[in-house]
Simulated assay, not measured.
Amino acid sequence: MSDREGHSGLPPTDDDLSLPKATVAKMITELLPNDVTCAKETRDLIIECCVEFIHLISSEANEICEQDSKKTIAPEHIIGALKRLGFETFTEEVEDVLKDHKQQQKDREKKVSKLEQSGKTEEELWEEQQRLFAESRAKYESQQQ
């Protein structure tokens, strides 16, 4: 149990929520010119602002979700919340990331289904691979002589 959770076993309160400080510090360092540094207090303030932004967007998305009579916040609820709160300029990038994410999921599913479609066990596939390696090795050795 972390110090942030307390000893009560209760879920963390809004005051306990944060972002990984090392990750935020790395992002800040990458974004700033090499000759500029960021004070710890500034980094902490940026983290607070980010947490507040996430809370604002998620609250608005939750309202949209409830208005749609849904129980789960979906990507379109987040996009709707961004638009409602005046962050329309963010929506294009969010939609691009969502599209990439969905494509990666499809690609992963295709890889799994190809294995399943083979109808072979992992052991059978391993044996087939070893046979192909042996054939290839034999062919290479015969060409070397």
Rank of each mutant, 00 (worst) to 15 (best):
S59A: 06
L45G: 09
E95G: 00
E95V: 03
H55V: 05
A39F: 09
T42M: 03
R131Y: 04
F53P: 10
L115M: 09
K40W: 04
I47L: 05
S118N: 01
I47H: 10
S58I: 10
D68W: 04
E63P: 01
S113T: 11
Q105R: 12
I73L: 09
K120G: 00
A61N: 04
L45Q: 04
E109Q: 15
T42H: 13
H55E: 10
K114G: 00
E123Y: 13
T42P: 01
G80I: 04
C50M: 08
G86D: 06
I73W: 01
D68L: 07
F90N: 02
Q117H: 14
F87P: 01
L98F: 13
Q130R: 15
T121N: 02
K40S: 14
S113Q: 15
S113M: 14
G86I: 11
K99D: 03
K71D: 03
F90A: 02
T91H: 00
E60T: 09
E128A: 08
K99C: 04
V36N: 02
V97T: 05
Q129C: 12
K83D: 06
Q67L: 14
V51N: 07
K106L: 11
L125V: 09
E88N: 08
C65S: 15
K70H: 11
W126S: 07
R84M: 04
G80P: 04
L98P: 00
G86W: 12
C65L: 04
R131Q: 14
K102A: 08
E48P: 00
T42E: 01
A81V: 06
W126F: 07
F133K: 10
E116K: 15
E123K: 10
L82Y: 03
K102G: 03
E60V: 07
V51A: 04
E52V: 02
C50L: 10
H77N: 15
L132S: 13
I57C: 01
A134W: 11
K111I: 02
I73H: 03
C49F: 04
K70A: 09
T42F: 04
L115T: 07
I57D: 01
S118K: 08
K83E: 14
V36T: 06
L125K: 09
D100C: 01
V94G: 01
A39K: 13
D35S: 06
T37Q: 08
L132F: 03
F87R: 08
H77G: 09
A61D: 09
E48R: 14
S59V: 07
G119W: 08
F133R: 12
Y140C: 08
L98S: 01
R108Y: 00
E41G: 05
